[in-house]
Amino acid sequence: MTLARKAFAEFIGTAGLLCAVIGSGIMAERLSGGNTGVALLANTLATVFALFVLIETLGPVSGAHFNPVVTLVMASRSAAADEPWVRLAMAFIACQLLGAVAGAWLAHAMFDMSLLQVSTKPRDGAGQWLAEAVATAGLILVILRAPAGKAAGLVACYIGAAYWFTASTSFANPAAVLGRMLSDSFAGVAPASAPAFVLAQCAGAAAGVGLARLLRETPPEPLCAPGNSVNRP
């Protein structure tokens, strides 16, 4: 597959994910009557279902990263890849960030909201940052340890659970931070909170890689190796 096709799959997948996260948050907030718990539950379910579908659908094309830290982790394990992994990783990350913005705008358009927004919802504090590190570490561990063919379900289930057991509701994704920063809605995050979230996610990703190495029994596979998903062990 060409680099362009893989990168486009990352754009579509990230846009779809952010559209699901933000759009379901808007719908949940409107219909929940002020009950934050019900709104979060609806937001969680929509995200889990969308994530599973997107990974299953686009995984065979690009590996279904939809997340810059996932791409960086997989690229770091891909020195033996047939194609230049630096070029592939840069293209993936650029398309993920653009897709996150497009997904936020698409969600706004569907709900007749202003396309251009900036969130006013602060998410600050040591607990929030620790939660993002934990959420990202767990996500990377699940991706690297998922048995062949089971990554979509495991990743979706983990993210759904982490929505509830982390104080930050588990962004675990710098592209998601960007998209949600551009939405003044239920799922938003204020720009001032974004840098600490991204730093915590990077730290969590490093921790997840370390945990996977401690548990690893076989050598790592290259990024997007022919016939393989990046989400294999």
Rank of each mutant, 00 (worst) to 15 (best):
T136L: 01
K150D: 03
I26C: 02
G179W: 04
A100F: 11
A20T: 05
A107E: 04
A107F: 05
A91S: 11
G33E: 13
T2S: 15
A187F: 06
A9L: 03
E221R: 14
G149R: 13
F8T: 12
A205F: 05
C95L: 14
A39V: 05
N35F: 12
L98W: 07
P122Q: 02
A89S: 15
N173I: 08
C19N: 12
S32V: 07
A100C: 14
R232K: 08
L31T: 13
P233C: 08
T44Y: 00
I22C: 02
L72Q: 02
I12D: 01
P60Y: 10
I93V: 15
G149Q: 13
L144W: 01
A225S: 12
A175L: 04
A42R: 04
E221C: 10
W105N: 06
T2E: 07
P174A: 09
V177R: 00
F49N: 03
G59V: 10
T71W: 03
S168L: 14
N228R: 14
A175D: 04
G33S: 12
L223D: 05
G37Y: 05
A94S: 13
L17Q: 02
P60G: 09
A81K: 06
L45G: 06
L17M: 11
A46K: 10
L199G: 04
I143Q: 05
V230F: 07
Q128G: 08
A104I: 02
A107M: 06
A9D: 02
S119D: 04
G127A: 13
V70I: 13
A4F: 10
C224I: 02
A80M: 13
A176G: 11
G188S: 09
A107Q: 05
R30T: 14
L215C: 00
P233G: 07
R87P: 00
L3G: 11
L106K: 06
M1K: 07
A107H: 06
A28T: 07
G63P: 04
E56M: 09
L178D: 01
A207S: 06
A104E: 00
T44D: 00
W105F: 14
G25V: 06
A109Q: 12
V101P: 07
A194W: 02
Y158S: 02
L106N: 05
V86C: 06
R77F: 08
V230E: 07
A190P: 03
G16N: 08
A28I: 09
A28M: 11
F171E: 04
A15K: 03
C224P: 00
T136V: 01
T218I: 11
A212T: 06
A75T: 02
P222E: 01
P174Y: 08
T36W: 14
P147T: 09
L211W: 02
L106D: 03
I22M: 01
R213N: 11
G160I: 07
F197M: 02
A89I: 08
G208D: 04
C95A: 15
F165A: 09
M74L: 15
L211N: 00
V189G: 00
G204H: 07
A89K: 02
H108L: 05
F49M: 11
T169A: 12
L58Y: 01
L18E: 04
A161W: 11
L116K: 10
A104W: 01
S185E: 11
A20E: 03
S24P: 07
F66S: 02
A196S: 10
W105V: 11
S62E: 07
V86D: 10
A42C: 13
